[in-house]
Amino acid sequence: MSETAKRSASRGVHVTVMRSQLGRVRGLGSAKSGVAHWWAERVTSVALVPLTLWFVAAAVQLVGASHEDVLNWVASPVTIVLLICLLLATFYHMKLGLQVVVEDYVHVDSVRFALLLLIKAVCFLAALAGIISVLKMGL
């Protein structure tokens, strides 16, 4: 019994703490992972609000654009930076979101594990392919 519990018991108050002392110190709860996933999803979503609005505005101006128009657009450092930020935030947010969908609906462990790996791989590869393409055109 902890010191706090002993003191409470001596005053006639019964305190039952079901969590271990180590568990309380770690502060991660039963899920063992804390709020990292939830928090990252929010941070990326906040970043995506202005980035998405910028991209939609840019996309509207690029309707019917020639290959040369696109290369000229990507030649600007501002475009390069914002496109890379958009790709990073989008695919990180996409990985987090699709992960939850799979965790909610896929209950066969082997299939779930395979799908989670697939999502990670596709998001990582797509983000990398997009970023490299932007750098190749812009630099």
Binding site: H67, V74, T90, A127, A129, G130, S133, V134, M137
Partner: peptide, 9 residues
């Protein structure tokens, strides 16, 4: 979007 960017590059 990535397909479009890769193709443009």
């Amino acid at each position: 979007l990535v397909w479009w960017l890769v193709a443009a590059a």
